[in-house]
């Protein structure tokens, strides 16, 4: 097991992410994303459980099921996220940062942290569908294109996070 190496300078990592985003614009004419892939997976799961015809009648699900094809592999964002998993793994492996762990602040147990992770995820999943994106898709990709909605998202996302931070202090101290 390698000793964990220190993280890259955030500005350099950020420039790296920016170049990847630029490559996405140039190659496929769209930005990066993440929450859409989750939506796609849920849609496919819904179709698998309820049958595609019924799932296609659910307004929130229908856009993800063109012509009854319910394979998430057809979806660009899902394939992209699979790449994200591989890339994150590769980077951590080479830097000695692979570790089975439940990262948390000092004030909570692992179980409490997991509960918070799931709960936070639920709220994020709901919010991302409502906002039609997340930090990767709206804030980053839409933001770089100066989309109004993306910047609204950036503003309210960080404002809400900072506003509620004192309440969540126990989680992270």
């Amino acid at each position: 097991m390698r000793r964990p190496r220190p993280y890259t300078d955030p500005y350099l990592a950020g420039i790296g992410v920016g170049l990847v985003l630029l490559a996405a614009y140039v190659v496929v004419g769209q930005g990066l994303g993440a929450s859409g892939a989750f939506a796609s997976v849920v849609a496919s799961g819904t179709a698998a459980l309820q049958g595609t015809a019924r799932a296609a009648m659910v307004p929130a699900v229908a856009p993800y099921l063109p012509f009854g094809v319910s394979s998430p592999l057809r979806d660009w964002l899902v394939l992209e996220l699979m790449g994200v998993v591989a890339g994150g793994f590769a980077s951590a492996w080479l830097a000695g940062r692979l570790r089975r762990d439940t990262e948390r602040g000092g004030g909570v147990s692992s179980a409490q942290r997991m509960t918070a992770a799931i709960a936070g995820g639920v709220v994020m999943g709901f919010g991302a569908k409502l906002a039609r994106g997340c930090t990767s898709g709206q804030a980053l990709s839409g933001g770089a294109l100066l989309s109004v909605g993306s910047w609204i998202f950036i503003a309210t996302c960080f404002a809400a996070g900072y506003a509620c931070a004192p309440l969540a202090r126990r989680l992270w101290r």
Binding site: L32, A34, S35, A37, F38, L81, V84, E103, A116, A117, A119, G120, G121, V122, V123, M124, G125, F126, G127, A128, K129, L130, A131, R132, C134, T135, S136, Q138, S147, V148, G149, S150, I152, F153, I154, A155, T156, C157, F158, A159, A160, G161, C164, A165, A168, L171, W172
Partner: peptide, 25 residues
């Protein structure tokens, strides 16, 4: 752009992000 739902959704997302400590990506 859908101003209102993106504002509300963004705020919800921010709270979830704070509690979860991670975003989708």
């Amino acid at each position: 752009t859908f101003a209102l739902p993106q504002a509300v959704g963004g705020a919800l997302f921010g709270v979830g992000f704070l509690v979860a400590g991670l975003c989708p990506g």
